[in-house]
Structures are given as C-alpha cells and as structure tokens.
C-alpha cells in the first residue's frame, strides 16, 4: 500500500533545522495493522501527515497504491484522501455545532452523496457503533467514548481502505479504549490497513507491526505476531 523512499522532512525555525522524519525505505502492506510508537516530538504525527497526503516531504517519494502521492495535483490528492483514507483523531475533531448524524454525513457530503444516501448511510454507521439512539445529539451531549465512536462512524463513511489514527485511545477510559481497539481489530479483519500513532502500550500491543521512532529516525521496525487480528 505504501512505499516511502529516501524521505526527509525538516522543520526550520529561527534559522535552526530540526529533522522531523528521515527514512531511506519503509513499506506498509495491504491489511497491515501498524503502530507507530515513540516519545513526544519523535516525528510520529509528521509521518502520519505525510502518509495522509497532507504534508509533503522535503525529499523522497511517498507511493500510495502505486501513485507518487505528492506528484499528484492537490485536488487529486484530496480526492484520494476522501475516497481511500479514513482519519481518527485523539480529540475526535467532531464539528461541535453539528449533530452526531450530521458529523457522519460530512465525508459523504464531501464525496457528493445525495441527501437520502447521506442520511441512510450515516444512520446505519451510527447504529453499527452502537449510537443509533444518539443520532440527534451534539458532541457536547455525548461522553468521550461516544464521541470517539461517532468519529469512527464518520471515518467509515466512505468505506476507506486505509485508516490513519492519531492517538485514538489517548482520551478514553479503559472500557471505551477496549471498545475502540475491538473495532480496529474488526477493521483489520475486514481487510483494511491501519496505521496508528500511539503512546498507549496496550493499543500498540494490538498491532501486527510496531515502528519505533526517535528523533525522527526509524529505530527498530519490528513485526510481532498479532493473535487478536489474525
């Protein structure tokens, strides 16, 4: 699914350069469940942003399903993101003035789905994540666990092949965390690819592969048997 070749991303601030991410080669295959771990500021989110087509590297290529992602015009890159990639955020990033249903409708609207399709699909997804009775609730009227489930329903709206998750369990209580990780296991079983940035060892342990980052460098790519996802 992904091939990263000779990637370098450097941030410049006050005439100082900080290497945010550097990798000579990294492949992520279809159906993999990858956890990116490492201390704060190690380049995890930079890597996730580059995989999501939102941050171009200073050098090198990011190949996504056979296309050089950053050689595509911005609208085509946006289209790839819209149709093939789903995002999960640590603080859920729900639109506060929209209901749960409307939040899930957003990616469908961006794809150009008609009103009926938007409503039916969003309602079905909310039902699937166990929030069928909360569709008219706004985020502020939901618990954090429920908010993350709305965010998961939104992520699934356009049936993405790739899920990029940034600390998906970082703000959740143990029960909600387990519920989210169980859903991730199911997504992998459905054939989706997950790349998850996490500080949470429990979450990282559920992945089939862990990438450790330190000061922007990949230290020990390691692959572990994933009993739950298999």
């Amino acid at each position: 699914m992904f091939q990263l070749q000779d990637i370098t991303k450097v941030y410049r601030k006050r005439q100082q350069e900080v290497v945010a991410f550097k990798a000579t080669s990294l492949d992520i295959g279809f159906g993999e469940y990858v956890a990116i771990v490492g201390p704060s500021g190690s380049g995890k989110t930079t890597l996730l942003s580059m995989l999501g087509g939102m941050l171009s590297p200073d050098s090198g290529n990011v190949w996504f399903e056979g296309e050089s992602l950053y050689d595509l015009p911005i609208n085509e890159r946006t289209q790839r993101r819209r149709e093939r990639i789903g995002f999960v955020f640590q603080t859920f990033n729900l639109v506060p003035y929209l209901t749960a249903l409307e939040n899930v409708q957003v990616p469908l609207f961006l794809r150009g789905a008609n009103k009926a399709e938007q409503r039916d699909r969003a309602a079905a997804l909310l039902e699937q994540v166990g929030l069928g009775n909360r569709i008219e609730h706004k985020p502020s009227e939901l618990s954090t666990g429920q908010q993350q489930r709305v965010a998961l329903a939104r992520m699934l709206a356009n049936n993405p092949r790739l899920i990029l998750a940034d600390e998906p369990t970082g703000n959740l209580d143990p029960d909600s965390r387990e519920a989210v990780l169980s859903m991730f296991d199911n997504f992998v079983r459905e054939g989706r690819t997950i790349v998850m940035v996490t500080h949470d060892p429990v979450a990282a342990a559920r992945a089939s592969r862990r990438l450790r980052l330190n000061d922007g460098m990949l230290i020990t790519p390691e692959t572990i048997p994933n009993t739950k996802a298999a």
């Binding site: 939102m54 993101r81 995002f87 990033n93 639109v95 990616p107 961006l110 939104r154």
Partner: peptide, 16 residues
C-alpha cells in the same frame, strides 16, 4: 483552523 484542517483531512478541497 483545526475544524478546517479536519474538513480538509476528510476530503474538502481548497475551493470548497
């Protein structure tokens, strides 16, 4: 900014 960033991550084009 974050809401706009999220919309763009979800597939909103700059023109939208």
């Amino acid at each position: 900014r974050r809401e706009v960033g999220t919309l763009m991550a979800l597939g909103a084009t700059p023109s939208l």
